[in-house]
Amino acid sequence: MGRGGVVGEVAHDGVVVGFDGSVASRRAAYWAAREAATRRRRLLVVSAFRWPLTELTQLRTEIVVLTEDPFRAEYQKLVDSVVEECRELAGGMEVTGEVLTGEPVDVLDRVSVNANLLVLGSSGHGTAHQVLLGSTSAELVRYAHAPVVVVRGDDLTHGKVVVGADGSPTSTRAVDFAFDFASRHNAELVAVHAWSDLPLDALAAVREWDVDWDEVTESARTVLSEAIAGHAERYPDVRVRQVVAMSKPVQAILDEAEGADLVVVGSHGRGAVRRMLLGSVSQAILHYAKCPVAVLRAEPGVH
């Protein structure tokens, strides 16, 4: 069932990339290979094989019996070809490929349970893009144990990483991921904190109250500074720019994401209501960002 010596079909501490033969998944594989090189991790290219004639076996009619072997062999050829291409990009790290039976979400979730990173491809924008994301990538973003990167955009290096920071435990994971990425790629880190989830129009009446907006803004700056303080000390080589925005989190992050190499967000934030809000933020960023997006989930038991 494939090759590569993966014990129990689980990639322990390696980089996993889903591959289905599409242009988007091939682009994701190249991105994953370059990332595996900087992380000094091996790369596993995984293709989920679902026997296309399974439904026909349930029909009460005479059909020509076809085996899956020729189809599986073609899948393996596709995987082998992209593995060879990725070896040229992986900086000497081990690159292997697997063709595994099952639905893509189930297969990739199982293989990446102990992975260092799971990389997925994404195609286009708008309605079709949303359907594609909803069927595989978005589901894995919600449930996969490993950090997930959804790749899109060009392959150019712009030297900028954007991270959303709100001071929550999940945000801390996202900030740490972003600092590590920026350090390895010699990129500027833009840390964004949107102090309110309300649209500015809704705040119009509030502005008439006796509110010290300078104090509110300063408090937001403090939250952001504290969110990155420890990380900045561990990564003194990373150039950091802090952005406190009055706009909604999605817009604030997307504004800074123009020309970025990566956007990093957490899937959950502060409190029960905040978890719902930031869950929608991460999904919106996945839909609308024009560059790769990394999503970090909360660790088990952390809210």
Rank of each mutant, 00 (worst) to 15 (best):
L53E: 13
V161T: 12
V46H: 00
V95R: 08
L156V: 13
E68L: 02
R142N: 11
K160S: 00
D180P: 03
R50C: 03
D176A: 12
V150D: 06
E85K: 11
D80I: 03
A165D: 06
L118F: 07
A73M: 10
H145S: 09
H125Q: 14
E103F: 11
S112L: 06
S81Q: 15
S112G: 02
G91R: 13
H185P: 00
N116M: 02
V79R: 10
Q58E: 10
N114A: 14
F49V: 05
L118S: 11
Q130H: 15
L140P: 02
F49S: 01
R142V: 08
G124N: 11
G159Y: 04
G124W: 06
D155A: 14
V150G: 06
G167P: 05
S183A: 15
E103V: 04
A48Q: 00
S81R: 07
A178G: 04
D176K: 00
R152V: 06
E85S: 10
S47T: 08
V162D: 08
S122F: 01
R87I: 01
V148R: 03
F177Y: 15
A182L: 07
F71Y: 12
D109K: 06
D106Y: 00
N116C: 15
H158G: 03
E84F: 01
G153L: 06
E55V: 09
L120K: 15
V163F: 02
L43K: 11
K160G: 01
E94V: 05
L156R: 14
V46N: 01
S171D: 06
T172A: 15
T57K: 14
H129F: 08
D154K: 01
S47I: 07
P52E: 08
L53H: 13
E103T: 05
G121Y: 13
P104V: 05
R110T: 11
V163D: 11
T170C: 15
Q58G: 03
F181C: 00
V141A: 00
S168P: 01
V131C: 09
V149M: 09
A182K: 12
T127W: 12
L118A: 12
A73T: 03
V105W: 11
R72W: 07
P147A: 07
L132S: 08
S135C: 15
G97N: 04
V46Y: 00
S81K: 03
G91A: 05
F181H: 15
R110S: 14
V82W: 03
H185L: 11
N114Y: 06
V82H: 07
W51T: 07
P147W: 02
H125N: 09
P169M: 02
V151K: 03
V175C: 01
D166S: 10
V175G: 09
E68V: 10
D106Q: 13
A146W: 07
A146Y: 08
H145W: 09
G124Y: 10
R110Q: 09
R87D: 00
A144L: 04
D69L: 01
P52T: 01
G121S: 06
A146D: 13
G126W: 13
T57G: 12
A165V: 09
R173G: 06
D180M: 12
D154Y: 11
D166L: 04
G134N: 10
S137T: 10
V148E: 09
T96F: 05
